[in-house]
């Protein structure tokens, strides 16, 4: 990473951090918190789908597991919310590892892998919706009990900073990985598995580590969602919507790039809000915008927003840019 990139990252985080000092609008703060949660989920997707090239269509499996594990521990076993957070993240990693073990060991790649992840997420959604233990179709409602110890904040600003802290942590983890042997192996697996194997890369183990870390990050987003809205059901936690959000944000921002998920999440939802403002409350109009943006990105800007920006910059400054 160049100093230039580090500066941009610091500026971006600082700009988000001061937002609550500039506006007291609940709608604005809600918007930012929601987008940060999406960005965190997308950071998880990006590590596996962007950096390691194993596109998933089922990151809801991790998001939902984080949310449900934490909610169930709190509601059924009286466990503290912070411990619930830790457990949710750990279970996200475990579920990731298991899905990875079953599908990568069977040699699934590309759209086959994507479909299998979708199937896993759907199975979990149906189970969570059917079982009494998980609250069935009624979902799970956390008791309102404000306080730092319960991971519930009366002020939206505080929650925003917490979510931002997680996104910053996700950034640091992604940057660290990019600078290590593991990061180089992830990219090697994405670019050419046979060549990677020939150079001594244990492809299965690299993919399993990637999906476990990816699952943990997206599970953290699920726990944050739970703690912010204090309510989940199967459709929210394990719904296809979050798989799509995670994938789209990473793709639109710039697949495989550390800042991609954040830029993508803000771009998408910014556009979504703008459309709503112009077009009024036409149902599904934001979804149409998403579809349109996806088509545009795939057709004209495979590098996403960041890829476009890099193209606009003068050539001399572009060399040496990796992050």
């Amino acid at each position: 990473m160049t100093r230039h990139t580090a500066l941009w990252i610091a500026l971006l985080l600082a700009a988000i951090a001061v937002a609550p000092l500039l506006t007291a609008s609940n709608a604005a703060l809600n918007f930012i918190v929601f987008v940060l949660i999406i960005a965190l989920a997308a950071q998880g997707w990006n590590l596996l789908g962007g950096v390691a090239g194993q596109s998933s269509f089922g990151h809801a499996a991790f998001f939902g597991t984080g949310a449900y594990v934490s909610a169930l521990l709190q509601l059924r076993f009286g466990v503290n919310a912070w411990a619930g957070l830790a457990a949710g993240i750990a279970m996200g990693a475990l579920v990731g590892w298991v899905i990875g073990f079953l599908s990568f060991r069977a040699g699934l790649r590309g759209s086959y892998f994507a479909l299998v992840t979708l199937a896993f997420a759907e199975v979990l959604r149906i189970l969570a919706n059917a079982m009494g233990f998980t609250g069935g179709a009624a979902g799970l409602l956390l008791k309102l009990d404000l306080g730092f110890a319960n991971l519930q904040f009366s002020s939206r600003a505080q929650f925003l900073w917490l979510a931002l802290g997680f996104v910053a942590l996700g950034l640091i983890i992604s940057l660290r990985i990019a600078a290590t042997r593991f990061g180089a192996q992830l990219v090697a697996v994405r670019e050419n598995e046979d060549a990677a194997k020939a150079l001594g890369v244990d492809v299965l183990s690299v993919k399993l580590r990637a999906i476990a870390i990816s699952g943990a990050m997206t599970a953290a987003a699920g726990v944050l969602y739970l703690q912010y809205f204090l309510y989940i059901d199967a459709q929210i936690a394990y719904g296809v919507w979050i798989s799509v959000e995670a994938l789209l944000a990473a793709m639109v921002g710039g697949r495989g790039l550390v800042l991609g998920p954040i830029i993508g999440a803000f771009t998408l939802h910014g556009l979504g809000e703008a459309t709503k403002a112009f077009a009024g409350r036409v149902p599904g109009i934001d979804l149409m915008v998403y579809g349109g943006v996806l088509v545009l990105v795939v057709a004209f800007a495979p590098g996403g927003v960041l890829g476009l920006l890099a193209k606009l910059r003068p050539k001399s400054r572009r060399s040496g840019e990796t992050a």
């Binding site: 180089a184 192996q185 990219v187 090697a188 990677a196 020939a198 150079l199």
Partner: peptide, 25 residues
């Protein structure tokens, strides 16, 4: 170690990064 008759570069990476994958072993 083997080379491939039909070359298999990590096309998206630069030359240094390509060779580094081998060196990381």
């Amino acid at each position: 170690a083997r080379t491939f008759q039909i070359v298999q570069p990590f096309a998206g990476l630069d030359v240094r990064e390509n060779i580094a994958v081998g060196a990381y072993l």
